[in-house]
């Protein structure tokens, strides 16, 4: 397709998704289990009417922090999905590839079994997530072979080991309520969102995004593989390492605050590539806005219709599969068009 057409389309979709993001962000503040009439909503925000204290408290203390968290987790997970897929040149790869989510789950499960507070659950999850990826990289070094396949393979090995540890912890937790807590955490929730957590999340995600936007051209070349990147003047090992570190941090920081959320890291990059091709300077901005919007929608769905919250992975799974099937149908049509030519 014509480069100018893709550029135009990218700009259109980017603008549209920014508008959608703003609309859903406000909807995220308006909708929920507690009914707030539209005029009450605006009064609660723009006046200090004491009769709306409860409404104001719900908007400011419950919905605002979790909507912000949803937005940034959405950005983080879809970006890291995109980066992993591009770096490993495999479109079925998700952010969990190098074991970061399973590692984080083990960390969280340990903290839950020890009966630690939710802040410690997050810290344990974050550190174990990073540690797991570190171990994965170390194991791949044992092979003295820098290829991505070896890294993928050791990711599978370490991921499998971590799942086994997780099963063991679940088994040893014994107590049915502890087990339920672990399972619930694994399915993801924004329930623990508050502003101080949001500040940490926002800080990390924004720094990662700034760095990523600066290195979009090297990212493109890294996607071409070592031989191409290196002979075109890009330090392949350095940039691949940097990309893996950034996407791992993005996943770990998201997972540690809200548990594991599946599908988003797989689906959003696919949609984005359909629109903008494989140029990181276009796919990264689109991933940011699409991921944030998708996650806010998921959060609204997860907390509005039932008296307790539906786990995020259940919603992303349902929504994600439907979207994925639609993508496949569109792609099939495209493939058939090519055949006709």
């Amino acid at each position: 397709m014509n480069d100018k057409k893709i550029k135009k389309r990218t700009i259109i979709f980017l603008t549209a998704s920014i508008v959608a993001l703003l609309i859903f962000f406000i909807l995220g503040l308006m909708l929920g289990r507690f009914n707030i009439a539209i005029d009450d909503f605006f009064k609660a925000i723009f006046t200090s009417d004491a009769s709306l204290d409860t409404q104001r408290s719900i908007i400011v203390n419950l919905r605002l922090p979790r909507t912000i968290m949803a937005a940034f987790v959405g950005m983080g997970l879809s970006l890291s999905g995109l980066l992993y897929q591009e770096t490993f040149r495999n479109k079925l790869v998700s952010p969990d590839l190098l074991g970061v989510s399973t590692g984080a789950s083990v960390g969280a499960a340990i903290a839950i079994v020890l009966g630690l507070s939710s802040a410690f659950i997050s810290i344990f999850a974050f550190l174990m997530g990073l540690l797991t990826v570190f171990v994965t990289v170390m194991i791949s070094k044992l092979f003295r072979n820098g290829s991505s396949t070896i890294l993928l393979l050791s990711g599978i090995i370490v991921g499998g080991f971590m799942s086994a540890i997780l099963s063991l912890i679940k088994y040893m937790s014994g107590d049915i309520t502890t087990l339920a807590s672990i399972t619930y955490w694994l399915m993801g929730s924004f329930e623990s969102a508050n502003m101080s957590r949001d500040y940490i999340l926002m800080g990390v995600v924004v720094v990662c995004i700034v760095v990523l936007l600066l290195i979009t051209h090297p990212i493109n070349l890294v996607n071409q593989g070592k031989a191409e990147a290196q002979t075109k003047g890009i330090n392949y090992n350095f940039y691949r390492g940097l990309i893996i570190v950034l996407s791992t941090v993005l996943t770990a920081i998201s997972v540690c605050f809200c548990g594991t959320v599946s599908w988003i890291g797989l689906v959003i990059p696919h949609i984005v590539r359909l629109i903008a091709g494989r140029d990181a300077k276009r796919t990264i901005p689109l991933c940011i806005t699409f991921g944030a919007t998708f996650m806010i929608v998921v959060d609204i769905l997860s907390r509005t219709f039932t008296d307790s919250e539906i786990p995020l992975s259940a919603v992303t799974g349902l929504l994600g599969t439907v979207i994925f099937v639609i993508i496949l149908i569109i792609k099939r049509r495209k493939l058939n068009e090519h055949k006709d030519i």
Binding site: R33, F34, T54, L62, R63, R303, S308
Partner: peptide, 8 residues
């Protein structure tokens, strides 16, 4: 139940 549910 969720916090919002309790408040509601």
């Amino acid at each position: 139940p969720s916090k919002e549910e309790i408040v509601a």
